[in-house]
Amino acid sequence: MSNETDANGRLDDILAGYGIERSNIIPILQAVQAEFGYLSVGSISAIAKYLRLSESVVYGVSTFYAQFKFVPVGKRLIRVCRGTACHVRGVSRVLDETSKLLGIDPGETTADLEYSLESIACFGSCALAPVMVVNENVHGKVTPDRVKKILGKD
């Protein structure tokens, strides 16, 4: 595989762990994204080839699901909950503040590839609304004042 994202054959290793079955498409996409942070054009075509599917099928499936990303994400992935409980508890101001501090809108990544910002449907920590998550760390009862500290920008 001569692909810029796969100098060490990591992609081939991932693929080899799965049988050539259509039902493995989502697990493979997830494993590849977990490894590289996103799905590159090269990865998609390699997955298609491996599963003996057309690239359009692989794109069709991957674009359907919100989890999959097609551009690299920042080192720190900031996810802000837009669920019902968080909405009622005023998460929109937390999101506004985060967006302002990072200078990007949800769905974007800072130019230095340091931060990505996403809004997510619900983390299931609704009792602690409003909730934001930095990589895997869940922060509850977030106020706009606390955002700076949570982002490590204070």
Binding site: E21, R22, I26, L29, Y65, A66, Q67, A121
Partner: peptide, 26 residues
């Protein structure tokens, strides 16, 4: 175990099965 991939409609039973089979979850 199958991990979902972030689509609310996949909670609907027929869409969920489409997703397990490796399709768009419609």
């Amino acid at each position: 175990i199958k991990e979902g991939a972030g689509a609310f409609v996949c909670g609907e039973e027929t869409a969920l099965m489409m997703s397990i089979e490796g399709n768009r979850g419609m």
